[in-house]
């Protein structure tokens, strides 16, 4: 068993365990913390997969920004015991949902393990036209990523900025107390 496999297995176990933690904890704070662990473990996956920049971005954006926001809201709404106070009106869905999820995972795993060997297409791999190539395997490849982002995908990248601006405006509008209400 190589080191690679060992590392993968450890990170995979961590990711799955923390993922289960997200949905299993009754307290929303614990769920949020589990999600942070899960996101960090994914960042580790990205490191293993040579994606240094993405790993860093994952840590910065998700762990640093998004999860902080989550924790703020969780604490602000003090909803940690919300589900304990009310009864589940569609409790049958608890069982059905779990079974459906397990079947989904099992079926996908079955396909991936037994039948569908998804191998990189040799022709596609050799083609320079179709993909932006990783320049030097093993290194960070951040330069290649930058080239891809600011050349081939410049327009989608710019559109993303517009989406973020729209989201900020939306959040401001939603978060603001309505004037009529404040005048009451």
């Amino acid at each position: 068993m190589s080191a690679n496999i060992l590392a993968f297995s450890a990170v995979a176990a961590l990711a799955i365990a923390s993922g289960i933690g997200v949905i299993a904890f009754r307290n929303a704070i614990y769920s949020a913390l589990s999600l942070i662990v899960n996101l960090l473990s994914l960042a580790l996956f990205y490191l293993i997969l040579n994606g240094m920049f993405i790993a860093a971005a994952q840590v910065l954006i998700y762990a640093g920004a998004i999860m902080v926001l989550f924790l703020f809201v969780v604490t602000m709404l003090s909803s940690d015991k919300a589900e304990l106070q009310t009864s589940d009106r569609i409790s049958w869905q608890r069982l059905v949902g779990v079974i459906a999820g397990i079947i989904f995972a099992a079926a996908a795993s079955f396909l991936l393990l037994v039948h569908a060997q998804i191998a990189p297409d040799a022709a596609a791999q050799g083609s320079n036209n179709l993909f932006t190539q990783i320049s030097a395997p093993g290194s960070g490849n951040t330069e290649a990523f930058g080239m891809a982002l600011f050349h081939g995908f410049l327009f989608p990248f710019e559109v993303t900025s517009a989406i973020i601006v729209a989201a900020i405006l939306g959040a401001v509008v939603l978060g603001r107390r309505s004037r009529a209400k404040s005048e009451d």
Partner: peptide, 30 residues
Amino acid sequence: LNSYLIVSAILFSIGVIGVLVRRNPLVIFM
């Protein structure tokens, strides 16, 4: 590659179960 995909599938299914089972919108969001 398939190992990663399997892990991904498992994580995705966990997310699905969360959406179906939990009632706290914050947890569903997570």
